[in-house]
Amino acid sequence: MEIDLIFKIAAIGIIVSILNQVLSRSGREEQATMTTLAGLVVVLMMLAQKIADLFDLVKELFQF
């Protein structure tokens, strides 16, 4: 069981939201948007591998 991934995503989400708040309060809206986007891409890359693993498991299990 890989609950680490859940905590990793939550931690990245919290860090990104704090950075977003700090950057947008200091008037750097573009950088805040870019930070949010970068965080999303990082998490999406982590998740894409897990989704592929799940689909492979289902394929193997249900004889696709």
Partner: peptide, 9 residues
Amino acid sequence: QSKDMQILL
């Protein structure tokens, strides 16, 4: 804070 990150979670 971020709805998109919640969906990914």
